[in-house]
Nucleic acid binder design. Sequence first.
RNA 1: GCGGGUGUAGCUCAGUUGGUUAGAGCGCCAGUUUGUGGCACUGGAGGCCGUGGGUUCAAACCCCAUCACUCGCCCCA
Length: 409
Amino acid sequence: MVTSLRGMPDIYPEETQQRDQLTKIFTNTAFLHGFHRIETPILESLDVFVRSVGETSDIVSKEMYTLKDKGERDLCLRPENTAGIIRSILNNKKSHIENQKYFYYGPMFRYERPQKGRLRQFSQLGIEYINAKSPTADVESIILANDFIKNIGITDYTLELNTLGDEETRKNHKKALVEYLSKHQQNLSKESQDRLQKNPLRILDSKDEKDIEICQSAPLLVDFLSKSAQDFFDRVVNLLNELNIYFNLNPYLVRGLDYYSHTIFEFKSGDLGSQSTFLAGGRYDKLSQLLGGRVLPSVGWAAGLERLMLISNLKKEDQITTLVIPGDESLVSPSLSLVDKIRSRGITSEVSPSTSFKSGLKYANKNQVNFAVLLGAKEQETNTVTWKNLLTGSQHTNTLEEFIKEIKK
RNA sequence: GCGGGUGUAGCUCAGUUGGUUAGAGCGCCAGUUUGUGGCACUGGAGGCCGUGGGUUCAAACCCCAUCACUCGCCCCA
């Protein structure tokens, strides 16, 4: 038998309903904050991510779905959306516009071993606040995240916050860090010894016990913050405090994508196993330059839809549904007209697949229809409908208008 | 990429030290007289025991491989 690919599940209505509800709430929340939806291609040039996310990052070095097209161009399925959106802003000559607010949702791809809350094709939803240099933008992004999280019924979570500073900050810190870690090189884990060359900052985020111990007394980036980077972060922290948004300062927090600078944050939940982060983001002032554009200070975040599904608490949306059951073949056509009339009132209506009240009612019951409409010869003659409330079992015969009035109660 | 666990009916799972026609519950289909669902009762359909190889007189059961799912590691949303 032909099967689906690993980590690429088929999604049926039991889940699509909840997914749609989540994206609907996300859309509404983002609209309330003045954000508008952007859509960029799923397939991009490999370069978009190699240059932005970083060649040494795990995402690019081992998790990309790459392919060649018929013109031998190197392409890949997008592992995230931020780089694609900035690429788009540059291509479409929109870099001069300040304070652009976008949101998106859609499929992303990473070639990883699937596990709880992690798939190869997964959905992310996120926002980008582009060409926004004020620290207020960082705070607004976090507020939007917070609102969204609350709106989907997640109550048990923490927000971790850190700053990566500006380039000057990181240059100085990196120097001190490499100096310090080199002294302990032989005690570092194998991975971290590798990282020492490629991306020493990541060692601070290691889960290896020895690494953690060594990092305890490693020079912290916070101590190297330039005046302007410090001021910027102070403004973010103060605003969050003034707004009573609770967060933990975590000086060890780093991100897996190379393009971040200044503010970074992660929302975490304890209910996701090892994949505790369900929403994460930060500021990425230099990303557009990596893609060959002008400076475009921006901030944004992304959340994993599947992870949100595991921890969200959505109320079921109830809506009225009706099923019209023709009593015999000759009543199929009148039934089709009847459902059309009911639908035109904005009420979901189906025609029973069979022309017997018995099997029609069974179908209605199975598909959780609220009201069955029995259209028999009698009703047809008297221009009425017999309708049954399937929850209570009560049954009445009325005109169509009376029926609709009744069920809308 | 690395490690652990699990693959038997649509679903959840039994299946004895290897031994005849592989079971249950739920679900599905049909029936239990009137133009009527849910509940109950009765009956029925449905399995290459994940796939391929091997050991054996004999394999769902033992061995090897492979695939899938799952939980961790790494990493990430």
